[in-house]
Design a protein around this nucleic acid. Structure first.
Lengths: 150, 150
DNA sequence: AGATTTTTGCAACTATGTTGCTATTTCGGT
DNA sequence: ACCGAAATAGCAACATAGTTGCAAAAATCT
């Protein structure tokens, strides 16, 4: 877990300022963790990777703040461990607009956003209305498929 | 929460025997809870509805057993509360085959299986393979929509 | 730099989920 | 209907996850 370079330091600071959030150590560090790697992170993942640098409560609150401001979004799961991933720029204060699906790899156990796969329209029976659609695909990811062929 | 009639008593007993599970009070009661109402139930829901009749651990283990035997299936959620719903007959020992989507109502907060809505095929990028697809739609359900019009 | 506002860390608490062990219940055979 | 073997339930203890109130510390504004 590399320390922040000047460049990433500036990047996370900018992201926070853009959301009019005060720039604090924990926010910078947690945001950096998301930028450092492609997958989604659970609260527990962050706690481990931050290495006891912050209080658990701070991490909970920071994640909640990021979700509220549209910096990250939640990904449901079947194992009682909500994961969080960075949002693209379209998400703003309290509004999340996600058209992509989420992929859970059974090999590396990572969860990714597949931005290039758009959620299809789901036709519901009469009387039902749709607010939001979440698509969770489980399988083997690209990296793990390649790794296995070797 | 009505006590089991002779008819439902027989029904749950038959369901359990069909899976070669021993017929115990807790299994009968928990299965009955699922049959009594249309929505999905979380562990907590069952604990409440069973009214302290069984130990928490028993409920956890019973749910796990039911999932293993294909009597019920899990539904992921974004609020760290896995829900369980009855399976149709196609699910057997260790194999779950679900083609339906799940609907979460924002009004009544219930989760249902929409058996009539089939999960679409999702085309993934090269290198990814699919084991399972879970579709979670959030919105307002039929009952709540009707209730509001009155 | 100082006042104000926001955020953090701590403590305490609730809820959720797991494991090992023993007592009880269920089931198959008679 | 009863008995022994096997499965299940309950208990205790523990582990993990998430919440709230409050005082100390840090960030922001001017």
């Amino acid at each position: 877990m590399p320390r922040a370079t000047a460049a990433t330091e500036k990047k996370v600071t900018d992201l926070l300022k853009r959301q009019t959030l005060s720039v604090t150590e924990s926010r910078k560090r947690i945001l950096q963790l998301f930028l450092e790697q492609p997958g989604a992170l659970s609260h527990g993942d962050i706690e481990k990777r931050a290495g006891g640098m912050f209080d658990r409560v701070t991490i909970y609150r920071t994640l909640q703040t990021f979700v509220d401001r549209g910096l990250i979004h939640t990904i449901p799961s079947a194992d009682n461990a909500i994961r969080y991933a960075l949002c693209k720029d379209e998400c703003g204060d309290g509004h999340h607009r996600h058209e992509h699906i989420h992929f859970v790899c059974t090999e590396c156990e990572q969860t990714f956003c597949l931005d290039e796969v758009v959620t299809p329209v789901i036709r519901l029976p009469k009387g039902y209305s749709t607010d939001q659609i979440e698509i969770l695909v489980q399988g083997k990811c690209k990296q793990c498929t390649v790794a296995e062929r070797r």
